Amino acid sequence: MTTGVRGPDLGTREETDAEGFGAALRRLRQAQKSPKGAPFYSLWVNRPLGRVFAALMYTWGRTPNQVTAISACFTFAALVAVALVPPGPLAGVLIGLGLVVGYALDSADGQVARLRGGGSVTGEWLDHVIDSVKNGSLHLAVAIGFYRFVLPEHPALDPWWLLVPLGFSVVAGVHFAGMLLTEQLSRARRISLGMTAVAPGTTPRWMSLAKLPTDYGVLCLSFVLLGAPLVFATVYTVLAVASAGYLVLVLGKWYRDLRALDRTAAAGSAP
């Protein structure tokens, strides 16, 4: 799931049209978004995989919006399968693979934009709209699939468990909206105060690892367990609880960060 600006430009399209896969990949490695705040899977697995897809798509002449559309096809095909296909080992592997590839391509669209000389506001808008649909529909697909296939076959699983994916959908939606709002409001306020658009600093690796249970990439990988629905339900519940707990903590942090910028602005305007 990509957020915010798509990163530094890597030259104009005219300058790079003759470039091959290897050269494109090397340039992408030299100009990546800041790792600040990124969970471990997203940082060390999804972004490198996205670079490979980006270099391929670029050499094949695909545009960033086309890459976004391809990403959506992989993701939503997997989600339709979660809702409509009986769970099994093969289905779980294919669904997990579809979600992983869709997530990597979601990272690739912005990198293709950089290779072509910069992104567009319409591309950014399209990317975020598709992410918004994905964040809600993924968990609703889990609820539908379990209601249709798992609950009738596994009476040990209480029907009240369906509240877990419904609650997870709310958590995912609030987190995504809060992340975008905080990023954009903070950027605008910092620029108005004459500060750098993004606060300096890095995220320790231990914190990146600590965020693993809340990482969308880990959620994608969990779907390979659909062949064992009760195991998947357990893992999915753990991820839901971890994500809800993290949301509570990060909402407080976001509020404090924005409040600090407001105090700085108020102090600067005081007579």
Rank of each mutant, 00 (worst) to 15 (best):
D158T: 04
D215T: 12
A113S: 10
A197R: 14
A104S: 12
P159S: 11
P213N: 15
R116V: 00
S137I: 13
V112K: 03
R205G: 00
L162N: 11
P152D: 07
G110V: 09
L230R: 01
Y103M: 13
G136T: 12
Y236W: 08
L209G: 13
A104I: 02
G123Y: 01
S132Q: 12
L157I: 09
P229S: 10
P89K: 06
A177I: 14
L221S: 12
G201D: 05
V198Q: 15
T202H: 08
A143P: 04
V150K: 03
V218D: 02
G110C: 04
V164I: 11
V150A: 06
V93P: 02
I144V: 08
V121H: 14
L151I: 13
G117L: 03
K134S: 09
D109T: 07
Y236T: 09
S132H: 14
T234D: 01
V112A: 06
I191H: 02
E124R: 13
L163P: 03
P165G: 08
T202N: 08
V121R: 11
S120A: 10
G217N: 04
R114C: 15
D127M: 02
Q111K: 10
E183L: 15
A172D: 05
A104V: 05
E124D: 14
G118Q: 08
H154W: 09
H154M: 06
H175I: 15
A91C: 00
A156Y: 01
G96H: 06
T202K: 06
L163H: 00
K134T: 13
V150Y: 03
Y216D: 11
A210M: 12
R148Y: 01
M207C: 00
V129N: 07
H139N: 11
R190W: 00
P229N: 09
N135Q: 09
V198M: 09
V100S: 06
Y103F: 14
V171T: 12
A197E: 15
S137K: 01
A233F: 07
Q184P: 00
A113G: 11
L99H: 08
I95E: 02
M179T: 14
V198F: 03
W161F: 10
G217T: 12
V218M: 14
L151V: 13
S208T: 15
V174G: 02
S192A: 15
W161S: 08
F168E: 05
W206H: 11
V129Q: 13
W161C: 10
G110E: 09
T214E: 14
I144T: 09
L105H: 10
E124I: 06
C220G: 05
L162Y: 02
D106I: 03
I130K: 01
V100W: 10
S186A: 14
L105V: 01
T214A: 14
L162C: 06
L115C: 02
A228V: 11
A108P: 01
I95R: 03
A108L: 00
N135Y: 10
G123D: 00
A91T: 11
A199F: 07
A210Y: 04
P229A: 14
T234L: 11
G110I: 13
K134I: 01
A228E: 08
L105C: 08
I144D: 01
F149T: 10
